[in-house]
Design a protein around this nucleic acid. Sequence first.
DNA 1: TTGAAATGTTAGCTATGGCTAAGTCGAAGA
DNA 2: TCTTCGACTTAGCCATAGCTAACATTTCAA
Lengths: 132, 132
Amino acid sequence: MAEQAEGFRRSREARRNALTDDYVEMIADLIATDGEARSVDIACRFGVTQATVAKTILRLKREGLVAAERYGALHLTDSGKAKAADARARHQVVVAFLKRIGVSPDIAERDAEGIEHHVSEETLAAFARLSG
Amino acid sequence: MAEQAEGFRRSREARRNALTDDYVEMIADLIATDGEARSVDIACRFGVTQATVAKTILRLKREGLVAAERYGALHLTDSGKAKAADARARHQVVVAFLKRIGVSPDIAERDAEGIEHHVSEETLAAFARLSG
DNA sequence: TTGAAATGTTAGCTATGGCTAAGTCGAAGA
DNA sequence: TCTTCGACTTAGCCATAGCTAACATTTCAA
Ligand SMILES: [Mn+2]
Ligand SMILES: [Mn+2]
Ligand SMILES: [Mn+2]
Ligand SMILES: [Mn+2]
């Protein structure tokens, strides 16, 4: 009973943290590929408006994951970088695993975008082991 | 670009529908095991308050998935039943697959609770194929 | 150099999903 | 029967995540 509730609690928790992880991962990605992360590119890649990005970035700053001066590019704090690295690693493992079991690359990428937020260490280890 | 945005759109969509699926699945489960679904039991199993359940049930009624008279037990409409059956099937496949690749039963159950909402037909088919 | 376009910010709206507190109803026991 | 206790509802709070519209700043090209 309490055990089942615990499972749902974790699931809700993961859902709450999913967007945060996607943002820090995206910011790290943009910095890696474009040299810097701008709100407009985040908005474009996520398919939301710049206003939505602005509001979320405010929260991430409040949470100490992102730093930026007004009208400037976005940076990750140390804890932001750590979270991004973790998110990226998970993403890679999940995508590689899905492809490995025969899911087509584009579908693997799409599904991984959601699945990555709900994979425990144990499951992630199983995925990694089985994909190489 | 637009393709990546599409992936995130789907992921957000799945996130929005996750709670709905969990509710109809839970209601079907309770009807199957207890003979009827009561709000108090849903609240207990999800680990939330009855007030939270009441508000969500209002939405599900509005969406035509759940029916009930005041102070009465909850019922699923035909479309609610269809959605519940689908959710249950996904849940089973994901749990079975995770166990099959060596994830311990309790962790498999927990992870599946989140993963089930992000698995495309193609990935679900791959899971099913590989676990039996 | 200056004005237009791109980018970023802010205000304010909606809907959702949590919560507590307070009230209402109904069924079971004294 | 009557009371009481468990179950349900409702009101109202907060935070998040989306949106549009309006405004501010920066950048770029003429
Ligand atoms: Mn993701
Ligand atoms: Mn990702
Ligand atoms: Mn679930
Ligand atoms: Mn489920």
